[in-house]
Design a protein around this nucleic acid. Sequence first.
DNA 1: CGCGGGTTTGAATGAGTTCAATCACGGTGG
DNA 2: CCACCGTGATTGAACTCATTCAAACCCGCG
Lengths: 238, 238
Amino acid sequence: MIPLINRIGQYINIDSNAFEDIEGIAHRIETRQSGQDIVTIDETVDFVFFIETGWAIRYRILDDGRRQIINFMLPGDCFDLMSLNRAKSDHSVAAASEVVLRRVKSDDFLKTVARKPQLATAFWWAAIQEEAILREQIIRIGRRTAKERLGHLILELYRRQAAASGVYDNYLALPIPQALFADALGLSIVHVSRTLTLLRKDGLLRVTNRGIEILDRDRLTLVCDFDSRYLKVKKLSI
Amino acid sequence: MIPLINRIGQYINIDSNAFEDIEGIAHRIETRQSGQDIVTIDETVDFVFFIETGWAIRYRILDDGRRQIINFMLPGDCFDLMSLNRAKSDHSVAAASEVVLRRVKSDDFLKTVARKPQLATAFWWAAIQEEAILREQIIRIGRRTAKERLGHLILELYRRQAAASGVYDNYLALPIPQALFADALGLSIVHVSRTLTLLRKDGLLRVTNRGIEILDRDRLTLVCDFDSRYLKVKKLSI
DNA sequence: CGCGGGTTTGAATGAGTTCAATCACGGTGG
DNA sequence: CCACCGTGATTGAACTCATTCAAACCCGCG
């Protein structure tokens, strides 16, 4: 729950019962192993999901096996908020690492949100941020070089992870293989590896066991033209 | 108004007064010349826009002048529905051709929609479709070849234009130069031209004066792996 | 007729891919 | 404790798709 509370706290001032309001919605906790689908393409979705731990991906497989990852979902993220009207999904969602998630029936979610305007506001902002992340992904893979793409994505994931965990230590724990970066950035695995080496040799980051340490965040931000504003949304004090 | 009615009619069964309901919202009609901004990056948006005629683009300029077009907005499209809470825009919107648009204050829009549940439903679906278009754009530029990208985009624009105009004649009127295709698809102008020539030589399309005639839609659909489902949403009969 | 925006073509270059081999490392079984 | 395996990361060499630069072309318009 802590990541979700941190996330929601970005948008509203959490009062004493916001926690219980969310916790109180009927839900089911599920665990998925890395690679397992959470939502399958063509499925009619009438659930809202919250990631508790682990990373998930939205993706699509093309006819000949090419895969494009649309975006990553981290602890604290909620998704398919937009699909409160039983739309058929045009893509799949899968666990990228082992994932624990909270599944809520759309109707139950709606009922709670209708009674709690601050929650409605917070989730509305969350949906707006999700859309901003999609736009940024388009800009990233459309007009940026491999180096910029990779650094930019690392910075995004770091910021999102930090915002949800509350820990700002310039370290991004990576529960996924580099192949997922490749499929997210429209690059080959080989080139992701090479590009990561470049960033390492530039002294911008250090690749550890299962994570990335950002050594010079200011310079990396500059090199990748990263502007974090798209991740921030004005906090309201309703 | 006809494009908007057609668009909305994709989502709800238009009853006699839906037309008046929309028409009745306080608005201002504006005209923008090609290239003029409609929404500027960093601007606080508290308007909802409807395109009456012409094409608009959402875009971002990178530090060194590279431009990425995020998506196109066609007659009948409404945009910035999500920004009903005075968010700062993280990108710009500009007229891609001469554009006539209807500008509505968010508050006025909200009031009307709150009184008319079918309209709320319709615009909700419109927002969902917009997000689906963003996801498809990511897949397009992330993992498709130049040929697929271009054909895929042409098919999308054709379908959207046809749905809004009601005319299904396999002809896409193009009010914009090829340079915009380049910036939308993450390609150079030169390569767009070459790729268009390829598609022409394959007998898939004919490039006319100010438009593209789709000669063999089935084959083009196959070649570009175009699956139109992301543009369609279930029609409700409320 | 000549100008100018937009498009096309050619040749050289370059960023990223592919294929294939090697390496690093954690887990497993003998 | 070591041999063995498998997954994921790295490196090299050849190749390809797309870019860049530059020139030519097309066509509507004053």
